[in-house]
Simulated scan of single mutants.
Amino acid sequence: MFYRYMMLFTMLLCLGACQSTNVQSDYDTKYDFSDLKTFHFIDTPDQGDPLSAERIRANILSTLTAKGFVEQQENSDFTVSYGFLTKDKPKSSGLSIGLGTGTSGSHGGVGVGTSMGIPIGSDSAKIQVIQVDIIDTKENRLIWRGTDEFDFESGGDEKVVETSKTITNILALFPLAQRLTKQPKC
């Protein structure tokens, strides 16, 4: 009986260890998002990284277009603004706790262990935080905001892929307010 409980507990720990998305969003709960069909971009101020700015804009455009929205400069239903920030990834202590179970013949056992890693050398990883704002054109007010972040070691292909995934994750929550629940990724 004890063994079954421990197996169930271990399975729950494994499910809890699944990586969940960091996407955060907020929206006007009284706004009717079903009327939104067309959009245009607001020019964003230079943030010192034109490569990231262009990748983010291109991914927002392709994601919104794939969702059925149409880019239209004049008389659009909503405008899109975005911003991003790159910061150093905090160094971690490397402390981890593990739980294991096992059997040998008719005997079972449970083990708990800890380990601590000591960071050697520099931690050159960075975090890119991206925020996307949706603004009602007629009322000129914010109606939806989504934010997510990703870690990266260097630019290039890795950053292109992570930027695309992050924008997809952010805009997966737009515009349907009823779908704004976090889903674990395993």
Rank of each mutant, 00 (worst) to 15 (best):
I134H: 03
G156V: 10
Q131F: 00
V160N: 15
K138S: 14
I135Q: 05
D148H: 04
T147H: 06
I143P: 00
K138T: 15
V129E: 14
E158G: 04
I167T: 13
D148L: 02
G155P: 01
T147G: 02
K159A: 15
T147R: 13
V129K: 07
T168R: 15
W144I: 08
L142E: 13
F152E: 00
E162R: 12
N169K: 15
T166G: 13
T163N: 11
G155K: 05
G156R: 09
D136F: 01
K159H: 14
S164M: 13
K138G: 13
K159S: 15
D133C: 06
R145Q: 09
F150K: 06
D133S: 13
T147N: 06
G146D: 04
T147I: 11
D133K: 11
Q128V: 12
T137K: 10
R145E: 05
K138H: 14
I134F: 02
I130G: 03
T147W: 00
R141Y: 03
V161E: 12
E139H: 08
D136A: 01
K165C: 13
T166P: 07
I143S: 11
V161A: 11
D157W: 09
I130R: 04
N169M: 10
T137F: 05
G146P: 03
I135H: 02
F150A: 02
V161R: 15
F150W: 08
V132N: 00
I134M: 07
R141Q: 05
R145S: 08
D133I: 05
I170A: 04
D157N: 12
R141E: 12
G155C: 01
G155A: 06
W144V: 09
R145L: 05
K138R: 14
E158S: 10
I143L: 10
F152S: 02
I130A: 05
D151F: 14
I134R: 04
I130C: 01
D133M: 13
V160S: 15
W144R: 06
I134L: 05
T147P: 03
D157F: 07
I167D: 12
I170K: 00
V160R: 15
D136K: 01
I170R: 02
Q128R: 10
I130W: 00
I135V: 14
N169A: 14
T137H: 13
N140C: 00
V129F: 05
V129L: 08
K138Y: 14
D133V: 05
D148V: 02
T166R: 15
G156Y: 09
